[in-house]
Amino acid sequence: MNLESAAVLTAPPARTGARTLGVGLLVALIAFAVLVPLLWQGDIARQDYLAILATPNGTYPLGTDHLGRDMLARLSVALRFSLGLAFISVCTAAIPGLLLGILAAWKGGWVDKLLGGVAELFLAVPGLLLVLLIVAVFPGSFVALYSAVALVLWVEYFRMTRALSRTVLASSAVSASQLLGFGPVYIVRRHLWPQLAPVLLTIAAFGAASTIMAIAALGFVSIGVRPPTAELGLMITELLPYYAEAPFVIALPICAIFLTVLALLLITGGRKP
């Protein structure tokens, strides 16, 4: 039995149920984002001036926005954008953070101090402020937005990996493997990864939730992606002046952000990394 299986068997029923609910909710959101463009041929840019701020009907199942654009199509694209960017940013941050953390713990000495100093430099600037600075220099750039988020996230993976790797590498089990002639790949696969995986997956879930919130916040203050791109925060900003006339329409992107972040936090089981 591996460590993940043991963790599932020993986890309290409430925590296991929360994770199951979170996974189910996330799968439903991903299915909505992926399947709607395949099943519903709505144009996110087409404007119907005869159906501005329309309530849900047969033509527009989720109504329309202030320009008469299909909210069902735009919401699916916005969800796909946020989830896709969160996934790419988390993966891009996790890989260097994991590798550099293992390298720092394995080599120690000046390598550890150098990499630790670089991580401290990133921690000296608040994460959201760093994202704002980069995005402000390159406004409307998808690459800048993605790179800024990844730069903020990698530090957590590095610090946690380095701390756990130090403990594992100092264990007698690793010493025995080294005496038997096993190389670094075997030690990482057999000793380090089973200990790192549960913690890194928890950090990844929190990181994805933070990414989605950051993207929405940047869109809300009109610093992230630019119109007519369908993005949840930007949609809220555009619809905010019409909240009294069409509260249901503005509630859609708000609920999408809430449900996505809730799903990711439930997957962590309420456990902080």
Rank of each mutant, 00 (worst) to 15 (best):
H191S: 05
I102R: 00
P12R: 12
G127Q: 08
V185C: 12
L232T: 08
L35T: 08
A136F: 03
A45C: 07
E231D: 14
I95N: 08
A230P: 11
G233L: 13
G140W: 08
K272R: 14
A18H: 01
F32V: 05
K113L: 15
L21E: 00
L252F: 13
V221I: 15
V131W: 01
G233S: 13
F182A: 09
G219S: 08
A86L: 04
Q195D: 14
V90Y: 13
G127M: 06
W193A: 10
L85T: 09
L100S: 05
I236P: 14
L169A: 13
A208T: 05
A230Q: 03
T92E: 00
G181C: 02
I134E: 07
I236C: 12
L133M: 01
R15M: 09
G219E: 06
A6M: 15
V249Q: 14
V174F: 07
I52N: 07
Q47S: 08
L123K: 03
D70F: 11
T59H: 13
L164K: 12
I102M: 12
G116A: 14
G68R: 09
A170W: 06
G84M: 01
G116Y: 03
W106V: 04
T202N: 13
Y146I: 05
V155L: 10
R190C: 07
A51R: 15
A104F: 11
A205S: 15
L169I: 10
A18M: 10
K107S: 03
P273C: 12
I187L: 08
L180W: 07
S171L: 02
L201G: 04
A94E: 04
